[in-house]
Simulated assay, not measured.
Amino acid sequence: MMLLLDIGNTNLRWALSDGGPPGEVRVVRHGGAVPIDLLADWELLDAPERVVASNVGGASVAAAIGRATRAYWGLDLDLVQTRARFGALSIAYPEPGRFGVDRWLALVAAHRLVPEAVLVVDAGTAATFDLLLADGRHLGGLILPGVEMMRASLLAGTLIPRIASEPTDEPWAADTGPAVAAGSLQAIGALATRLYDRLERETQTPPALILTGGDAERLIPAMDRPARVVPDLVLRGLFEVVSGEASDIG
């Protein structure tokens, strides 16, 4: 049994693997530390043989989680790092350490999930967009503020009142609150459409579009191209990397 962790900027996702793809995914907000409800869940677990993590949430949360895994099971936290190549996958960044490990693992999983070229949109605290050809060549990507960060920065820099509101299915709004809510989603959706169409022109065939991250489901109404939501994409990539390491050792 292996415990897989995806430590994001805001949320921590975790799942167990018994030698196959990740099982049920649990999500908690970490706040830079170990959430109490996470520890309560872990108290009920049988001891895993290994704890493997992807971390973009910072050193402090990784250290805190490492202390917890050692206290519970005597296991150190094994942090995966971005690699320039993994199988047929090769990233565009000349310095792999500057490419977020969560983005890399999402590409690892996407390359396994679909045979065609793919645009991966990870809608979390930041919204990232990565383009991958069918042969595993990563073309590069773009980064925007995520949905909540986009809204918060707009409200912080203006006198627009803070009105809690969710967008409708309409592409525009008739009041300020819904206009702000819809605008953040439509901005991410519009960039996804633009990149999808550029990738289609590059490959001369329709690519896949995979959405992941905490706001993936909220983006669906703003998408103009067929999209598939894979909430555990990073954890799937983590499993693929660990499985690949085991195969290499074997």
Rank of each mutant, 00 (worst) to 15 (best):
A109T: 09
D197W: 02
L38G: 12
P171W: 04
A62Q: 07
V52D: 06
E202F: 00
D135Y: 02
T205M: 02
L142T: 04
T10E: 07
L211V: 11
Y72E: 08
Y196P: 00
L185M: 09
I7H: 05
D18S: 05
P96I: 04
V230T: 08
D224G: 08
W172L: 04
P207R: 03
E217L: 15
A222K: 05
L12A: 00
T10K: 15
V108G: 02
H111A: 12
P171E: 03
L38H: 04
D248F: 12
Q204A: 11
G244V: 06
A127W: 02
R98H: 10
I220K: 08
E240V: 03
D224N: 13
W42P: 07
G141N: 06
D135V: 01
R137M: 00
F99N: 11
A68K: 03
F239N: 11
A227F: 05
D232G: 12
A190D: 06
D135P: 15
P115A: 13
M150L: 13
L139A: 14
R29G: 11
A47D: 10
L119Q: 05
G20M: 11
A164P: 03
T212A: 08
P22M: 13
L89F: 01
M1G: 12
P35V: 09
A110T: 14
Y196N: 00
P21W: 12
G213Y: 06
V234M: 10
G183I: 04
P96Y: 11
A64H: 09
T69P: 11
A64S: 14
D135W: 00
E166R: 12
P115Q: 00
G57P: 15
S247K: 14
T158G: 04
I220C: 13
G244D: 06
A174Q: 09
S54Y: 11
V242S: 04
F129A: 05
Q81H: 10
I7E: 00
P35H: 09
V241A: 10
Q204D: 05
L44M: 10
D232A: 15
D41F: 08
G136D: 01
A15E: 03
L155F: 00
R70Q: 14
L131A: 13
A123G: 10
A127D: 01
L38F: 13
P206M: 03
E166N: 06
R151F: 03
V108R: 00
A190C: 09
A40F: 05
V114C: 05
R29D: 11
F129D: 01
S243K: 12
W42V: 10
W42D: 08
L199A: 00
N11A: 09
P167F: 02
P48Y: 08
T125P: 07
A174H: 09
G97V: 02
D102Y: 13
P221L: 08
A68T: 12
L211E: 11
S165F: 04
L185P: 15
P231G: 09
